[in-house]
Design a binder for these strands. Structure first.
Lengths: 343, 343
DNA sequence: GCACGTCGTCGAAGCGCTTCGATTTCCTGT
DNA sequence: ACAGGAAATCGAAGCGCTTCGACGACGTGC
């Protein structure tokens, strides 16, 4: 292994000079810098990460905690993770992958040992067990998701409440009066996952305001579960003319079942989804949908972290950033049967 | 921050004694050990990762390189990654997340700087650009996947060739004489992704041996793409009575299309998939399938890495480990129309 | 032509840990 | 009762890097 000292000897300068060339923290004359750079290249020098972390007490690593459960939005999770890693690299940082398994103690471990300088948490519950560790100053953190009480926390998420409202607005605008919501799996609600409840809140609020009927049913992604839920919905509210789906695995089963029971989309029923663009575009009927901007979420989370890490710890060190939802109209939504679009 | 020295002072011993208590590399008397342990707990001591890595030249970190593309088996990728992280933790290691974006140089970086002791690579291409860096001794690595020439490399993967053969055996055993293969997206083949080509090889070899007709078509996962591919297959080979699908996103579209065109599964056509169990179980018709054992792959990869890392670098330091495929019969396969099961 | 500030570089002191003798203590065998 | 060992602990020397104060060699202002 090549060390700084060897580079220094090779370039005929002191070790500290090489260090300053690398860090740019003190001015170095042009000829010297050139010489050092050449030696570095020639010897293939790579600074030792541990030594660097020890001396500078900065590891240049951030930890990313992903949920271990795989019952929800898996592709979204991976996309966020990849975006986090990519964005971190542009700042010269690497990403340590933590699973939820170890629980809150994992945070203490990587943070207390100086392994990671900061943390990004995904899949935050409304009342997450990891939150107490994060309030206040101790370790810099950004949550992807929104807990019940975000005071003193740094959060980024899609504005799911607004997303829900947007769906209702779109459908009500088309003339629908009865909407059914096919939600995430029951476990998602049992865990009080923020995004699910917030979407529901937004849907309800806006439906109430516009005088539209709303029926919500959690739903597993399996074909059978969707069939059961659909049957019950149509039984309870025969007047339902539109569905909002917030469960990507339920999308195709739902469309298939509607087709099979002779309901054309969008002529007989409209379907609006909250899901990644890729899912909406490739569905058997291209879906009118509110996109889940996975990449953007990952990127924003990292940017906020670095703002906090490098910035002057300004007044906006903490705070919530909700991305505005965007609804894209595709083929799956239209005015309800027998009615013209009323505008 | 609490240091080793403070713990030592608090316990009334020398720093080295504390270190030996922690590492167990030298015998420490029971009373002393107890005292040290108590001090550690009381002070909330956590060893500094960088210092430890510097002094011992072991970072206790392995790097995991995941593909950045999201066109293939995304949930499988995440599941492998999580299994890798979890298994690594049981050995006291953490996992650094690398994306394919940086390319081979990322390997050099994390490895050359001592950041990671070893590497696990996912989504290996038949002729992967990262392979040259890995041949021979330099840095310990395990591939999840199988390149064209695995000489000198350490690989773990499902035996996709055997999986293909197994599918043919199952269908031929039921009496099918014409099989169509709905493959991964064209990009997968263009990139010469190992598993896709190996499955195809296994399918072809066994089909040839058993005198069964085989037609292969790459296929995107979108509904329209599946529709196109299906139409062409039925056009070219009207006698096709069974499908093998190796593309989880194509599964539901295919089933929906078969239904829509009045072909019952499994009465009129059989469908066998190579996909994760979860997908097979939850499909609109539960699928006879060869499982992709994501967790197992992740776990085995890590175990092999540690065998190599800690082991005596025995003769089997390198080598290929192919997991035997398991075919589970579910509802989607049966004898072809108008024929009894011949055994 | 002399005090003074700059610029570029060097030396040395750590950062917190591991590890390798060396040292002390206490047992064992005879 | 005494040499010889084993067992338990200590001290010190790094691991490779960053960083701070210091220092020589300049140019500048009067």
């Amino acid at each position: 292994m090549v060390t700084l000292a060897e580079v220094a000897r090779h370039a005929g300068v002191s070790a500290s000079t090489v260090s300053y060339v690398l860090s740019g923290k003190r001015p170095i004359s042009d000829p010297t810098r050139r010489r050092v750079r050449a030696s570095i290249d020639q010897l293939g020098y790579q600074p030792h990460a541990g030594a660097r972390a020890l001396a500078s007490s900065r590891s240049r690593i951030i930890a990313l905690m992903v949920p271990l459960r795989t019952d929800m939005y898996v592709p979204v999770m991976l996309e966020i993770a990849v975006a986090v890693a990519t964005t971190a690299r542009t700042h010269g940082y690497d990403v340590l992958l933590l699973t939820g398994e170890e629980g809150p103690s994992a945070l203490r471990r990587v943070t207390g040992s100086g392994l990671a300088e900061a943390v990004i948490l995904m899949d935050v519950q409304l009342d997450d067990g990891r939150l107490p560790l994060l309030r206040g100053a101790a370790p810099p953190a950004v949550l992807v998701g929104l807990p019940a009480d975000p005071a003193g926390l740094n959060c980024v998420d899609l504005d799911f409440a607004a997303a829900g409202a947007l769906c209702v607005d779109h459908l009500a605008g088309l003339g629908h009066r009865e909407i059914a919501v096919v939600g995430g799996s029951p476990g998602v609600y049992a865990r009080h996952t923020g995004f699910a409840e917030r979407t529901l809140g937004g849907l309800r609020e806006r439906a109430g305001r516009r005088g539209v009927g709303l029926l919500h049913r959690p739903c597993d992604g399996s074909h059978d579960a969707v069939a059961g839920v659909l049957a019950r919905i149509l039984d309870e509210r025969p007047a339902v003319s539109a569905f909002v789906v917030q469960n990507e695995t339920a999308v195709e089963p739902l469309l298939a079942l509607l087709r099979r029971t002779g309901r054309a989309v969008p002529e007989d029923v409209s379907v609006v989804a909250v899901c990644p663009e890729a899912v909406a575009e490739r569905a058997s009927v291209p879906l009118t949908s509110v996109a889940i901007p996975a990449q953007e979420l990952g990127r924003r989370a990292v940017e906020r972290l670095f703002a906090r890490l490098t910035g002057a710890d300004g007044p906006d060190a903490a705070g919530v950033e909700l991305l505005a939802p965007v609804l894209t109209v595709r083929a799956s939504s239209g005015p309800p049967q027998g009615r013209a679009l009323t505008g």
